[in-house]
Design a protein around this nucleic acid. Structure first.
Length: 570
RNA sequence: GCACCCAUAGCUCAGCUGGAUAGAGCAUCGCCCUUCUAAGGCGAGGGUCUUAGGUUCGAAUCCUAAUGGGUGUACCA
């Protein structure tokens, strides 16, 4: 239900009838309950244009406002605010419809577009570390959201599987005489991070080995079959590690979504020649560059030694996504520190005609994860924290928070700990405005208090508990019986507006903020408006149960977009 | 040097296209469990929205500058 546009339509009607020729600005949520449900602030803005005082304009809008359908009351306040009250009967009907609909009355886009969401992008030479968390879950949320809203989403995992490190790794593999044959051989790569460190150590300490490594790079790049086979095996194992992480994280990335850097290898030379054709290319200090007007530093697309760079790959990828995949929106969920790079690459792509003008290119930037002291998140000895370790720790800590362990079987506790722990990590991250850095805090994220996943899951479980106890058949209609029910219903009907905005801005925290508002309201409703207790008449009981049900479904759907699961019992 | 980002309560953070007395949670202090999960709810205190100008009927929000912090800045990704 697009609540805002419904209300805007009513305002627009009043404008037409009142003979106001300007397009009204959108209504907004009332800042306080006393001010109604929504407010229209456009009268003040029109004052100058119409040469009338704002209260006069507001009055004439109200005089023509239809108060027989969606709205039931409108009042002028202050300098010319129009406070709007939604008709409780209309609210009840809409809530009823939402409840009866699998999609909670959330429409699919009338004009879906193809969207590429590029996220996660781990490097195959190392294990995933905490730095990959945000890209992975923010990107996944965006992809989930857009899919739910009806767009044609193409997830792209642009894994780093090419470059000098791989020469080093394979050379080390050969030197150690290790074979990656089947499952047995892969055992030696169990700890990829250690393997990488050992190889790097050898590379730094042993010049002969370093040369060997460089030779292997050339061999791989020139298509040496043996080396390529080793390389492929290496990638497979490494990707397996990533899939384990995705599985734990409840992230919807599969092998089908992988478009590795190497995928674009054959196109890189074309990128250069095509840039040349469009007269973009200039040689500078031996390198092939694109100089953008107003930019000091050029985009280097080919090194002096003939090698290509990540800008080259990104250009090839952009072109592929626009031309081959037909994307109309391409979203890169990447660390904010790469803002400069993307700004440049996007410009080059458009100026060179690799991507049509109408395609929206966006860098979904996010901030860094910090420790309690506000420093970048590291292990005690200053190393990077492996993502898998962080997630496992989250599950262990979550297990400790489970109160009545005797009520569950060990398997249930395992499952519960996973859902709670992983949910807590994800929610804490997604609840922060994505562009700012955020402080990672176990205690806070695993708390039931405040804007946390546990608080949401708890609310959901409470509702399920009521229905277990009720164990009957719902009948009758939703009736908006008091102020609290009115506000809860209004809040629940805002869901589609929230999802749309969150998708547009790629801001998961708009969803979490909304869910928190929903749950906070529900908790009050729960305290004040009993359902199954003595003395509640049947029709009230049925109505309240349905409001609770719609609340639960909204929580579930909201968390589902974030890739967070709910449980019936906590 | 240049460019970009950030600055809101003691702490962690919301604050949507500018709107009414700037909101949560934690922490502090009260109150509410024989009553649907108290892992909850209600209430109190706590702010020159970094500073100084400007635009506007109206600014935490937009513009300019200063200060403080972060990041990036030619052949890594």
């Amino acid at each position: 239900m697009k609540l805002k546009s419904q209300l805007n339509n009513v305002i627009q009607d009043a404008f037409n009838k009142a003979g106001i020729e300007h397009a009204p600005m959108s209504v907004s949520e009332a800042s306080k309950p006393e001010f109604g449900d929504y407010q229209f602030n456009g009268a003040m803005a029109l004052s100058k244009k119409l040469g009338k005082n704002p209260r006069e304009i507001a009055q004439s809008i109200i005089d023509h406002l239809d108060l027989s359908g969606v709205l039931t009351k409108a009042e002028i306040a202050g300098p010319g605010f129009i406070n709007l009250w939604i008709n409780p009967l209309w609210l009840a009907t809409q809530a009823q419809e939402a409840l009866a609909d699998e999609r909670l009355s959330i429409s699919r886009r009338e004009n879906p577009i193809k969207v590429v969401v590029d996220y996660s992008g781990p490097n195959m030479a190392k294990q995933m570390h905490v730095g990959h968390l945000r890209s992975t879950i923010i990107g996944d949320t965006l992809a989930n959201l857009l899919t739910f809203l009806g767009d044609d989403v193409i997830r792209q995992n642009h894994i780093g599987d090419w470059g000098t490190q791989f020469g080093m790794l394979i050379a080390y593999l050969e030197m150690k005489g290790l074979e990656m044959k089947g499952e047995d051989g892969s055992g030696s790569l169990k700890d990829l991070e250690q393997f990488y460190k050992d190889a790097k150590g050898e590379f730094d300490a042993n010049p002969a080995f370093a040369n060997k490594a460089r030779e292997y790079v050339v061999k791989i790049q020139s298509g040496d079959a043996h080396c390529l086979q080793l390389w492929q095996k290496f990638i497979d194992i490494s990707l397996g590690h990533c899939e384990e992480v995705y599985e734990k994280l409840n992230v919807n990335l599969t092998r089908d979504d992988v478009r590795a850097e190497s995928f674009y290898n054959d196109d890189l030379a074309n990128v250069i020649t095509d840039l040349q054709k469009s007269d973009k290319l200039q040689e500078s200090n031996g390198a092939q560059c694109v100089f953008l007007e107003g930019d000091e530093v050029p985009v280097i697309v080919q090194k002096g030694d003939g090698g290509y760079l990540y800008a080259t790959t990104d250009l090839a990828a952009l072109r592929y996504r626009a031309k081959e995949l037909g994307a109309k929106r391409i979203s890169y969920v990447v660390d904010a520190r790469q803002a400069g790079h993307f700004k440049q690459v996007f410009r080059v792509a458009k100026e060179a005609g690799f991507v049509p003008e109408y395609v929206k290119l966006e860098h979904i930037a996010f901030g860094t994860m910090m420790d309690k002291g506000g420093k970048p998140f590291k292990t005690r000895d200053g190393g990077t924290v492996k993502l898998i370790d962080l997630l496992d720790e989250a599950v262990v800590k979550a297990r400790e928070t489970i109160n009545n362990k005797e009520d569950y079987t060990p398997e249930q506790i395992d499952e519960l700990a996973k859902i709670i722990g992983i949910g807590a990590v994800k929610y804490a991250d997604l609840a922060i405005n994505r562009e700012s850095n955020y402080i990672f805090n176990w205690d806070k994220m695993l708390s039931f208090e405040g804007n946390t996943s546990l608080y949401m899951q708890y609310a959901y479980a409470r509702i399920q508990s009521i229905f277990r106890k009720f164990d009957g058949q719902i009948s009758g209609d939703i009736i908006i019986g008091d102020e609290l029910e009115h506000r809860l219903a209004t809040m629940l009907l805002r869901f589609e507006d929230v999802l749309n905005r969150a998708a547009e801005d790629a801001s998961p925290n708009q969803i979490t903020t909304y869910l928190y508002d929903v749950v906070t309201l529900f908790m009050r409703f729960y305290e004040q408006n009993p359902m199954l207790k003595e003395g509640v008449d049947e029709s009230t009981k049925m109505s309240r149960l349905q409001l609770a049900d719609l609340t639960a479904k909204t929580i579930k759907q909201g968390l589902d977009s974030l890739g967070i699961r709910v449980v019936d019992r906590l």
